[in-house]
Amino acid sequence: MATIEFLLTPFIACLLLILINVYFGIHVIKREIIFIDIALAQIAALGSAVAMVVFVSLHPEIAHDHEHHNVFSYLFSLAFITMAALIFTFLKHSKITIPLEAIIGITYAIATTGTVIVLDKGAGGDIHVHDMLIGSILWISWHQVTKLFIIVLLVGLFHLIFRHKFRQISDRSSPDTMTVKNPYLWDFLFYLTFGLVVIEAVNVAGILTIFAFLILPASVSILLSRDWKRRLLTGWGIGLFVVVTGLYLSLKMDVPCSPVIIVLLAAVLTVTLLAYRLSGKKRSKAI
């Protein structure tokens, strides 16, 4: 009974993450901006690193006041994410002859190395790359789950209400051929809402876990089905299955749960790819 109680918070958190990330994953693959989540996470990290340095230099006497510090660093992360969203929105233009993914990659590199420089110069704190990558979802508190729930609910509702607009801009990659009014505004809102989710999700589960939740189930669902509704349902189904098995296995075998979930997701993807290839061959033979 105690184990069930212990696993309840990570389980709910995983479900929330799957729910929102599969949806965004399908968008992200459609837009061919696969690595945007890692880039945004790193930009948020740069924001909180800058916040830390500014905070310490402003109030050296209360440097360990975590309550204030958290709000402060969240605001900085938010500001940096907004800036990145603006950059991505403006540089997706037919006049810019390089793919948007290249811009995303460059921002990612700047953000990562920028964080290293800032931390080097300022507080001298070392970055725990390992923790940043896989997080510690098993130790999530009810408070964090509530925060995650609120963000997922708000962003989810927003996307549900305006789903047609978001779908249209993702289905057609160039904003110049759009029927939606103000494609730039919707692009910006897409990046911004995604950034909000990423800040919260990466705090809870780490960059790599979120990346896996985003890309792997969505890839499987894109291979298996064609329309949006079915893709979402397939992605969620796979996610649910993997989260339940992953948490169970990590408890039984006493290994960290995030890598197990990632490896399981990869296994599901491999099986699907093989099945897809085989059935594809059969189909072409039949023709």
């Binding site: 790599l208 291979l223 197990v260 990632i262 490896v263």
Partner: peptide, 28 residues
């Protein structure tokens, strides 16, 4: 795949994710 439904960049992302995930498991 003849009709590339999954962009190649997504396949790269998958490789990256799996390799890093396994590296993290081995790091223990």
């Amino acid at each position: 795949v003849r009709k590339q439904r999954l962009p190649r960049e997504a396949i790269i992302g998958i490789f990256y994710c799996i390799a890093l995930g396994m590296a993290l498991l081995l790091a223990e």
